[in-house]
């Protein structure tokens, strides 16, 4: 089986680098995008096994990303994880209502992120 491909969307270069590092170490292939618009555009270019998105981003925020991805039928089964500093229940509920698969709060630990991704992608 080829390495699962993950799209990581975050406007922070540091966070992108961290997520890429953690996931590459765990055998995932990672592509990154710098904001929601880029993220949605990148999502259309190939098949991703999962998406990790930040919420607060310029141009299009994480909610918009979830909405855009879920708006296409064929994408409904792609797990979309939210990785953000926001921890409010209100935000979480909003993300879920839009179709988020899971929710992680920054700062994340590497194992937690990897475990969650494995869980939602079913790759153990």
């Amino acid at each position: 089986m080829s390495a699962p491909v993950v799209l990581a969307i975050d406007d922070s270069r540091t966070m992108r680098q961290m997520v890429s590092q953690a996931l590459s170490n765990a055998g995932f292939e990672v592509e990154t995008a710098e904001d929601g618009v880029q993220g949605v555009a990148a999502f259309g270019t190939r098949r991703f096994d999962a998406v990790i998105t930040d919420i607060n981003m310029p141009n299009l925020d994480g909610f918009g990303v979830i909405e855009a991805i879920r708006s296409a039928r064929s994408n409904r089964r792609v797990p979309v994880l939210v990785l953000t500093t926001e921890s409010s229940e209100e935000f979480r509920a909003k993300a879920r209502n839009l179709g988020a698969t899971g929710w992680l709060v920054k700062p994340f630990d590497e194992t937690g992120l990897v475990d969650t991704l494995r869980l939602v992608t079913g790759r153990n």
Binding site: T85, S88, L104, V105, P107, G112, L113, T116
Partner: peptide, 16 residues
């Protein structure tokens, strides 16, 4: 200030 208190900020992984 509603949900996040600064204590939360350092929770290593705050899942559901």
């Amino acid at each position: 200030e509603t949900a996040a208190s600064s204590d939360d900020l350092f929770a290593p992984v705050a899942f559901a």
